[in-house]
Design a protein around this nucleic acid. Structure first.
Length: 602
RNA sequence: GGUCCCGUAGCUCAACUGGAUAGAGCAACUGCCUUCUAAGCAGUAGGUUACAGGUUCGAGUCCUGUCGGGAUCACCA
């Protein structure tokens, strides 16, 4: 039973009876009643004055009276100006609650999840460079991409998670060159340094040596711009890139070795943060793609060739400008490659939607990419979406790798887990835990706190990462929600010992009244499917993060206000157990959609 | 300079897409553990939604302008 639908249908009926007017039900809008007023759903009558030919207040009174006498779910109503606040009776809430328990078992799906509808979506995220380790910005990307994949899957899509690794190019050659010159054969094994970090050190080393060279050249009287282009180190790196492209075996061997170190490092990080992929694409395999598409575009007259032989697309009619697609010497650029990669992916696994989880500094690139693919009439073009997320700033300002202000992903994860351990030990909450269980708990809490901190903010917005706040475990945080879950788990363990059922709705078939906090929680439970739909439609995990916090908060109010095992009425007692079990299940599932685990005890 | 995004409590974020007296958390202050986990709950205080106009029954939300912050405008990726 969809309660909003039922109310809307009744309102439509009211309009029909009272004012001889009928709506499309989708045009009737309900909103949650604000906390300071009585009621659960509010209907705003201001827009309908011309239909009712009465002032909004009078219309609201009339409609309210109609609903009260003609609907068995409306207990009462009140009118404030043009706002009609509807109170739902307890029996209706109970009925709604029972349908929540029973529906999933019919569908063999968690409550709120949609059955598979056959549409396919590909989600690209992570997409690191192999010249340095992952940092805080990558974490936002990875958590978003992974969470979104889970959300879309729960919403009925067949999801394919892909990663496009940038494993070639001048930046990779820089770390290779520095390693060649200063590495003395060092390896992750010999140095005890994680592979991606080791390679990252040489990338930094290159930059240091390069800067020194430029400075020396400038001191010798060279223009700075010229020095930057003519420094021996940068020329050597460029030469190395050419040799790489020609397939020079010694360069390729070094490249393979160092990239392998990086992949081992990345895999460790991915495992630690709990993300995975169905397919990994490498730019070394895709960077030559797209040239045939350029030919196709020329034939179709979508692109044009300039006198020097370079190929461009003119998007002036779309409000953009001209964009290069192929250099005069026939070599490709980023855009060329992305055109080719899009086709390749569609051939590999045809999709209805493709979501690129990429930072908003590339907004323009994707706008152009999508327009070009549209002009080329690719069947998948309408399903392309750029999930453009904002940067993560630090209290000190922007993260800059060259200035060493980058927050390293591995370090951060380690710190979060350590903080979780310190907090837990301080509270003395690990009585009866084995060492392994305790370690697992710290990991679940620390990672949860980090993921939630990054996911609770609207992805589109830039956000501030305050290290102090991120390790706080009170209030709007994952540990708060996890704590709520753990508390309920304790109740359920006790209930099971007592022989109380966790899903049996018959045990409270005759219950008729609810505590206010219970009705509020049920109200939130009822919202879950819509929240999932919204998160999926808007590609926005923060919707669910916000939601699950509300749910946990409201349950905690119930928890302190209402006793379960001291309840004399066996019907009420049975209800509260099932009610708690259901809350726990929704918390667990919603957190799972965020990629966050919940502990049974903490 | 052109284009795009942003500006909400001291701080970090919400505000159901135009609805009521703009809400949470953190920080501050006050209460609540002999009762199911106090990582909790209840309460107090904190606002000219950057500013100025406009649109309308109604604007944090839409339009115009100003100020402030950011991104982008590469034959880099």
């Amino acid at each position: 039973m969809d309660i909003e639908k039922r109310i809307k249908s009744k309102i439509n009926e009211a309009f029909h009876t009272l004012y001889a007017h009928t709506f499309d039900e989708n045009d009737i809008k309900l909103q949650p009643t604000r906390k300071e007023f009585k009621g659960s759903y509010t209907f705003v009558t201001f827009p309908y004055a011309s239909i009712t030919r009465k002032n909004p207040q009078a219309s609201a009174e009339e409609i309210g009276n109609y609903l009260k006498s003609n609907s068995n779910i409306i207990q009462d109503f009140n009118v404030v100006k043009g706002f009609l606040n509807l109170e739902i009776n307890h029996t209706a809430w109970l009925e709604l609650f029972k349908s929540i328990i029973n529906t999933p078992r019919e569908k063999h799906l968690p409550y709120g999840y949609q059955t598979m509808h056959g549409q396919k979506v590909m989600v690209e995220f992570s997409s690191p460079n192999t010249n340095k380790p992952l940092h805080l910005g990558h974490l936002r990307n990875n958590f978003l991409g992974y969470s979104l994949s889970r959300i879309l899957s729960a919403y009925g899509y067949t999801v394919r998670k892909v990663n496009l690794v940038n494993d070639r190019g001048i930046h990779i050659c820089k770390s290779m060159l520095a390693y060649q010159k200063f590495g003395h054969g060092e390896t992750p094994a010999s140095s005890g340094i994680k592979g991606d970090h080791l390679v990252g050190q040489y990338y930094v080393r290159f930059d240091q040596e390069y800067k020194k060279q430029v400075q020396t050249l400038v001191e010798q009287g060279m223009e700075e711009e010229t020095a930057k282009k003519q420094s021996p180190l940068i020329e050597e790196a460029q030469e190395m890139l050419q040799r790489w492209e020609q397939g020079d075996s010694s360069v390729r061997n070094l490249w393979k070795t160092m990239n392998q170190w990086v992949y081992e490092g990345f895999n460790e990080t991915y495992q630690n943060i709990g993300v995975s992929f169905d397919k990994i694409y490498y730019e070394s395999d895709t960077y030559l793609l797209g040239k045939d598409i350029v030919e196709e575009g020329l034939e179709k007259g979508v692109f044009f060739r300039k006198e020097d032989g370079s190929v461009w697309v003119d998007l002036a009619d779309e409000g953009l400008d001209q964009k290069l697609l192929l250099r005069a010497d026939g070599t490709s650029v980023y855009m060329t490659q992305d055109l080719g990669t899009a086709d390749l992916r569609y051939q590999d696994n045809p999709f209805d939607k493709l979501v690129y989880v990429v930072g908003n500094e590339q907004d323009y690139h994707f706008e152009v990419l999508f327009k070009i693919l549209g002009k080329l009439e690719r069947p998948y073009a309408p399903g392309l979406y750029h999930l453009s997320y904002g940067m993560v700033d630090l209290p000190s300002g922007k993260m800059k790798s060259r200035e060493g202000t980058v927050v390293d992903a591995d370090d951060l994860v380690k710190e979060m887990v350590q903080t979780a351990q310190a907090q837990t030990e301080e509270l003395g909450k690990i009585e009866g835990f084995t060492e392994a269980q305790a370690q697992e708990l710290y990991r679940v809490l620390g990672m949860g706190a980090l993921k939630y901190f990054l996911l609770k903010v609207d992805p589109k917005k830039r956000m501030l990462f305050n290290p102090v706040e991120s390790v706080q475990f009170q209030g709007n945080t994952a540990p708060f929600i996890q704590y709520t879950y753990a508390r309920i788990s304790a109740i359920l363990r006790k209930a099971e010992e007592t022989g109380l059922a966790l899903t049996d709705t018959k045990a409270f078939a005759h219950l008729e009244t609810l505590q206010p906090a219970e009705a509020e929680v049920i109200r939130l439970m009822v919202d879950f499917p819509q929240k999932l739909a919204m998160a999926a439609d808007e590609y926005n995990p923060s919707v669910l993060a916000q939601y699950v916090y509300e749910l946990a908060k409201e349950y905690n109010r119930f928890y302190t206000e209402v006793s379960i095992f001291n309840e004399k009425d066996p019907q009420a007692l049975a209800f509260r157990v099932v009610f708690s079990a259901t809350t726990a299940e929704i918390i667990k599932n919603a957190m799972d959609l965020l990629g966050i685990q919940v502990p049974e005890r903490m």
